[in-house]
Design a protein around this nucleic acid. Structure first.
Lengths: 342, 342
DNA sequence: TTGTAGGCGTTATCAA
DNA sequence: TTGATAACGCCTACAA
């Protein structure tokens, strides 16, 4: 076995090319400030030595890691992983790496400060609405503005940049679709209470009901947890009530799927007995039986826009005077889980 | 707006506590080598100044980033994102951060060398079977052994450490289940050709057919792409053949779902007309209609074991003399997409 | 156009 | 037990 060769440094390349380290550095970062001939010599030397830049040294010197951190409540959830995919594409297109943190537990701020204030990541993409962005902003002692973009969930703090879907409007449109189909007895499976998007969707539900002069039956508004299991439980609770709605707006597709599944086990058919509209348009939605009518969130765009915004902020390197808020629309995708009432 | 305070360094803390920087460093990394009283003074100073360690400087000095890189073909796929979740848990429990790279394109080696040889990541978790691990090993010039664990896909290279499921055996068990149900006309939807796991599953399929004295009808072996869309296409091709099998082993659950979906559109029912067994046990499998019979891969365990192994290697910091191969079993989960023949 | 020199913030070695 | 000092590898004034 060969003796371990040390990985070559910029000095090794310099020696090899018979120039100074400074020149090598220039060739790498601003090639036009170097004469053609030396540039070629240096490039050859880089190849010969197999040099790769040491990022740690570079970060230390530049005080920038060219890395961003994405924090999500549960990266195993396809919703977030789809976004992550877009985040990685956009980030690596701009020369940034992506660190991922999931299920940030008890002390999120300490956690995040470890990442952000310690030169590991230059900015934060926050997909976890349960984090307290007010306190997070406190991380940033000087008040300069920690590069931060909150996405997906409505930020409780208008001070932070955000990219979100208009959950309220989207919910209204989903419910209006049901109402347009002639439904009047409409239920809602809502998300977990900590979640801000859930509140917006509930508000949208109520607004759409109100504008149509329909009353909300509290027994038909049941809480879930944004997963399939909880959709089943929601169905159970609704089935236990005195009467049944003819249509239900589920806070997301997972819950819609669990809900429909449970309905079927109880001998009820969707859409024959109950129409169901979901939210998100997850991958399986078109292939489910029945194919799910749902509000499609532009997840790619959420990831791409949020990342672009974050990197712009990082590179502008200036205090964000005015926070930017991007609001994206959701699109109603009509499939077969909803049909005319009666 | 306040003037930007520079983030405090270890020197600031030292001044504050009236000790040397070396002492502060010791308090942070080996507290017992410091007297009780100074330790307290230093800790207080750390709190007062709001000091956080600069990871870039630390990495430079230590020649280690305490970061690992996970490379997957498509992190948006729930299969990989579930694993990622486990990877992050395990890694952060051991004080490591996780960088994620997805869809590594044309020149994967260059890409990866950028990460690994440049002190950004200390090791690689490779979930992309399309990467050439032979050439990847070449990254490691001295032959010391780049810390690398390949997972999920059968590594074409026995030289690299791996954590995999026994795809062949799992496939055999899936098909035996079908045979045990009395099926004799059995088809197979296989994965994309670049994929090694697909070959193993095909081999398992053939082995199980062979041992039961059944012949494989080539018209019933159709290729897909591990996604739902391709499952539909596979069904189309099978429906176009002279006769139909009574049971099908799908290379993964996504294809099983697309397949069943298409069948239903053609007026065929699963499991009444055709039984289908899938592979993976993705989240929606129990909620699909019919609930999917499938081979469950221990995805959490894959992620956890692979990560543990990688970090062990990194921290042992010694040439891996013998590559380690961990083979995990898959479990048959019988639900309702398969039933007795006839 | 190129080179010299200094410092980014840490930790390990060596002395005290 | 503590402190001074010297790297780790890079970039960027400033000088030549």
């Amino acid at each position: 076995m060969m003796p371990t060769k040390k990985t070559p440094t910029i000095q090794d390349v310099a020696r090899h090319a018979k120039v100074s380290a400074a020149t090598v550095s220039r060739v790498l970062s601003m090639p036009d400030r170097v004469s053609e001939t030396t540039r070629e010599r240096v490039n050859a030397a880089v190849r010969d030595t197999g040099y790769t830049i040491n990022q740690a040294a570079r970060s230390l010197r530049l005080r920038a890691a060219r890395t961003i951190l994405m924090a999500a409540p549960n990266i195993g959830n396809p919703f977030y992983s789809t976004i992550l995919d877009a985040v990685i594409s956009e980030a690596s297109g701009r020369g940034y790496s992506v660190l991922v943190a999931s299920r940030i537990g008890e002390d999120p701020n300490r956690w995040l400060s470890d990442y952000l204030l310690s030169n590991r990541a230059d900015g934060l993409l926050l997909f976890d609405g349960s984090l307290d962005t007010n306190r997070l902003h406190g991380l940033d002692e000087g008040g300069v503005g920690l590069p931060l973009v909150a996405a997906y969930d409505e930020p409780p703090d208008p001070q932070v940049n955000s990219v979100i879907t208009d959950n309220r409007l989207a919910a209204m449109r989903a419910v209006r679709h049901l109402i347009g189909l002639g439904h009047r007895d409409i239920g809602h499976v809502i998300g977990p209470s900590r979640n801000q998007s859930r509140n917006e969707r509930l508000l949208g539900f109520e607004a759409a009901m109100g504008e149509a002069g329909l009353t909300v039956n509290p027994a038909w508004v049941v809480q879930g947890n944004y997963n399939m299991e909880s959709g089943m439980a929601a169905a159970d609770r609704m089935l236990a009530s005195a009467s049944l709605p003819t249509a239900v707006f589920a806070g997301n597709d997972e819950m819609a799927i669990g809900f429909i599944h449970r309905l079927r086990r109880a001998g009820l058919d969707c859409p024959r007995d109950i129409s169901v509209v979901g939210f998100d348009d997850i991958a399986v939605a078109p292939y489910f039986d029945p194919p799910l009518t749902t509000m499609r969130q532009p997840r790619d765009e959420i990831g791409t826009r949020a990342t672009r915004m974050l990197i712009d902020i990082i590179e502008a390197a200036m205090p964000e005077n005015e926070p930017v808020h991007v609001v994206l629309g959701a699109e109603l995708v009509i499939r077969e889980s909803t049909r005319k009432a009666g």
